[in-house]
Design a protein around this nucleic acid. Structure first.
Lengths: 356, 356
DNA sequence: CTGTTAGCGCATTCAC
DNA sequence: GTGAATGCGCTAACAG
């Protein structure tokens, strides 16, 4: 039976080994298999696959039929190796735990959906060391472009970003010196605008209820901008409370409770983001504190959920989708890094809302 | 100066052209460069890089020094091509717009963080055709494993999943026939449990406020389970309202308003998920409807934000993190697909809460 | 413990 | 419009 099978293979010109220009007995068809079935050379089949160069209609049709018949999937590792360039776009983000970065992702998707690029996503949990590790592991795939959040990276990461032969977009933040392209807004300015806005509304006793900020450069920049605005007006933060760990609605709620227990004189509390501000509102509802009249609440991001509240959250709208789309579009403009760096300010809007 | 530089290169045995076994003047060092600098063969350097096989400590140290000096990054495309296997784990999810799938991702991350695997993430927006496209584009990179949400895929996608030489985990859902491994819960049962629970609480006039469900198999299964439970008790849905588009807090709020305008007799409304249920609660707050006493509200997922409300949301806890971690762990157990399929039920919990 | 040989599957020359 | 030759950077399979 074994002998018979062997004979059978040989009779058909098959060989049991895999070798160059021989038939291939694995179930994964290669370009050579497609070419053979279509009666063309590999390179012609390759041109059809990549939609590149002049191909006779009849030839193209034959190759396409062969592709369909075999269920051929191009091996991108081989293609990438041969052409020294992949179609990957590395996207390295701090978190996917709230809607902010998914919004950026959607923007990126929108920009590249009609191109050959594929996003490869990594999540750093706001840890620069993790960011470096992920970045290096992505670079091993020779991405055509890299999108990364913020302008602060480890020295090693920054060096690789600068030396690489790919485009780089640093998103969210523009307060700093980008490697290539920066798309985002000034978080310092946003914090400053928050302060001025609330002062103009008559608030005077400012509190801040945050999370541990070292890991979140942008929240930190907003905090500093806020303090600067207060100082310019001869005011200062009356009190602040920081809860260890990340940011969440629960933590916002607890933080406000602790803050008010110690400082009942506060008339407004700023939170690093909408999620936490929502928690603040929930605490007020629970404790029977009239929001805005007795205590103003202010967030950041302009999430839908804050605007769906019975009293829409007062906050700042960041344009996450636009940031993602713009970054990806800019990256697509040219494969090579130009001499000059590009900084794109997508700005922000104050949402007045009804909570401050 | 140029002449001098050229001389200098030649004197060092460098050449200005790139060729096999020649020196390489691009700024991207290869394994050959590392081997040369370390005074070993490529394969020895390769073994050090991959931490594989027995290597003399002295040799290893020399190679590692060379790697550091050159800033060498292994080319995974080449490695993957040579070994016919990549370290990629393809992860294809419907959405990143709420915390549910990021939770799954965190679980996956946790399981593979100490391994060589890298997750590559795709987002389908609940569109099976998009899922198929993303899946095929990922398969071109020869992933070692694939994690995909749900058990329903296009016929083509299912065929590729079945034929591929990689492990497959289908997550979230176990109501169906998996390709290889399924990890999740029965959404039909969850819906059924919801119905029984609310009936036992005394509710009789059931409403359902959903989104367009065709795209969301699992919400659909819960809906059917709910109806089955009602029917078994001689009850039925009094009314339902579906808003086109995805699910969001805003849509939950609007849906409930419309539903109650037409059916004020309802005493409980079930939402497809917590986000929408939250919108329902916001509507009640706005309209002055006493939640639970006058109208019960029930969600699904057990998100933190629902539990941070002044009155915690009544809902069902799905174990997203556990699902992701378990799926990835199972995939790591063996590289080859066993004969038998595996189905892992991670179950669910009813969170009684205070809204129903 | 280390090295030699021979491709992996495809795309870039350059011919015709 | 099509094809032949060559090598991208790495690793499996053997030797030694």
């Amino acid at each position: 039976m074994v002998a018979l099978s062997l004979f059978f293979f040989k009779a058909l010109g098959l060989s049991m080994q895999r070798k160059r220009n021989g038939y291939n007995d694995t179930d994964v068809p290669t370009l050579a298999d497609v070419a053979r079935l279509a009666g063309t050379s590999e390179i012609t089949a390759s041109r059809v696959v990549r939609n590149q160069g002049p191909i006779a209609d009849a030839t193209r049709a034959r190759v396409q039929r062969a592709i369909a018949e075999l269920g051929y999937i191009p091996n991108r590792a081989a293609g990438s190796l041969a052409s020294a360039a992949s179609t990957l776009m590395a996207v390295v983000l701090p978190s996917l735990s709230n809607i902010v970065f998914p919004d950026v992702l959607r923007g990126i998707h929108t920009a590249i959906t009609e191109t050959a690029f594929q996003p490869v996503i990594g999540v750093t949990d706001y840890d620069p060391v993790v960011e470096e590790r992920i970045l290096l592991s992505f670079l091993a795939w020779k991405p055509a472009a890299v999108i990364v959040a913020g302008l602060h990276h480890t020295a090693t990461a920054r060096r690789y970003l600068e030396r690489g032969r790919f485009r780089v977009a640093e998103v969210m933040d523009i307060d700093g010196d980008p490697v290539d392209i920066a798309v985002g807004m000034s978080h310092h300015e946003a914090g400053h605008a928050t302060g001025r806005h609330l002062i103009s509304r008559g608030y005077r006793n400012f509190g801040y209820a945050g999370h541990m900020i070292e890991t979140d450069d942008r929240a930190s920049a907003r905090y500093n901008g806020l303090r600067a605005a207060l100082q310019e007006a001869g005011l200062s933060l009356v009190a602040e409370h920081r809860t260890p760990g990340g940011s969440s609605t629960k933590i916002g709620r607890d933080s406000l409770e602790i803050l008010l227990a110690q400082h009942p004189e506060l008339d407004v509390v700023i939170f690093p983001n909408d999620d936490m501000a929502l928690g603040g509102i929930f605490h007020c509802m629970h404790a029977g504190i009239p929001v805005k009249e007795k205590l103003g609440i202010f967030g950041f991001n302009g999430l839908d959920i804050g605007q769906a509240l019975p009293m829409p959250l007062s906050t700042i709208l960041s344009r996450r989708f636009l940031i993602g789309r713009t970054a990806a579009e800019k990256l697509l403009e040219s494969r090579v890094r130009p001499e000059d760096k590009t900084i794109i300010n997508t700005g922000f809007d104050i949402i007045e809302g009804e909570t401050a």
